[in-house]
Design a protein around this nucleic acid. Structure first.
Lengths: 246, 246
DNA sequence: GATACCTTTCCGTTCAACGGAAGCCCGGTG
DNA sequence: CACCGGGCTTCCGTTGAACGGAAAGGTATC
């Protein structure tokens, strides 16, 4: 299956994640199913180029060059920089945990986050992925996703908490309302004690991201939060559109 | 020279930089000296894995997966997160542009930056590299670098402005003073109208980074800035040491 | 000093990668 | 409309780089 050299080399990088930031050569070989001899050579090349680095303790970690490259990715260089000041405003105005996310395949990918000093159990981390159907930002992204994506996502509504929506019909109805009303909400569907609201961020007509916040309870303040979110999302969209043509 | 497939694939990624965030297939082929047929195949694999992505306009850009990986790099995940609150404090206290940087080979690599709304001409960007001998953070990193690095760096003191120190003997003397006094300064050596101060950030005994600021003029406030920097650097070091063993 | 685990080096075989060339798809131009 | 130049994609026969098993070298553990 994974035959090509390139694919193998990339897979060696791919086994790193936030729980495994440092791996030994043999761990890498095991996790990728690469024979040791081969892994040794490939890792050597990756280190030479700067994609991996060797720690004093002998473990391998992701190298600085990858980090530098990552800064050039559009999510980072355009979306994130455009959104950053608005996230701060939003956080300042509400003191809730604020999220910026995009859809990547059938998952939500968190681009940025501003967390208040604890308060609500929040699962997301910058760069992490969560299912589309159990988060506020996820529902927004799903609501505006192409039909085939939505169809695929509905196939597989895994249960996370007792409140997670797992019936396709019910979720579809919710998504319809998201499009009608312009915002999505969740109530403890991803983690108990956490509710969320989210709105789309548009560049022109296209929905390119979602902006959301997590709070312990929605009832009283929903209108206020929605309008704060919409103002910020508007600002981000405007910034994106203006940066586009320089 | 660059024969191995892996090296070629990596080189394809390596030609992206902040001036060239989006490249077409044939640009990639030209810039790496790869025949088109080969480039096509390799780029295809990179896209399949998520290292590159194709924009609607047909150009290739760095993919989200690389960005995600970059977040796992130690510079980002340890240094940057440990330092972030202290950078904010420092910025709040002084309103000067604040920098965190490490040495990478014979260059300064900027890890984080907090810029005031214009004021002084600042060259650095997050993820960018500059020569070691012409910046405050660079001098600090050079002062505490291993002997062979320092020797190599002194070979090649390129002139940037009229004030850049280009005589090895003079720079060596400055570095001696940096070690003795615990901070480095520059006066318009990198860019006219900008002076800088910097101090080392230590993790235990080892100097792992440098913390600096850029201001229009140093004379009057030097002692105040140095002590603010030292307090912050101390804090960062403490945080690093405590995170180390979890 | 034996054990267990990791890393590094070596080398003959083989099959994946190579890249030249030919065809495709556009958009611009005479 | 026909032509042209550009970038993109596909194809295929040859070849040498990549493969991976095996064995030797390290280093902590019992």
């Amino acid at each position: 299956m994974a035959k090509s050299v390139t694919a193998r080399a990339l897979d060696l990088l791919g086994v790193f994640d936030s729980e495994h930031r440092s791996l030994t050569l043999s761990e890498l070989a095991r996790r990728t199913g690469t024979p040791l001899g081969t892994a040794h050579r490939l890792v050597g090349e990756l280190v030479r180029w700067g994609a991996l680095a060797r720690e004093p303790d002998g473990g391998y970690v992701i190298g600085r060059r990858i980090w530098q490259l990552g800064l050039l990715a559009p999510v980072q260089s355009e979306l994130r920089t455009a959104a950053s000041p608005f996230l701060h405003d939003l956080y300042g105005a509400t003191l809730a945990t604020v999220h910026l996310a995009v859809r990547d395949g059938l998952e939500v990918l968190y681009i940025d986050r501003l967390a208040g000093h604890v308060s609500v159990p929040v699962v997301s981390k910058i760069g992490s992925r969560l299912p589309l159907h159990a988060t506020g930002v996820g529902k927004v992204l799903l609501a505006y996703a192409p039909d085939d994506v939505r169809a695929n996502a509905l196939q597989n509504l895994t249960r996370v908490t007792a409140y997670t929506v797992t019936q396709p019909a019910r979720l579809l109805e919710q998504l319809r309302r998201v499009r009608a009303e312009g915002y999505a909400t969740t109530g403890e569907e991803m983690s108990l004690g956490a509710c969320s609201v989210a709105v789309p961020v548009r560049n022109g007509d296209a929905v390119v991201a979602a902006l959301g916040m997590v709070v312990p309870d929605l009832r009283r303040q929903l209108p206020r939060l929605v309008s704060a979110l919409q103002v910020a999302a508007q600002g981000i969209g405007r910034t994106l559109a203006s940066v586009q043509w320089k």
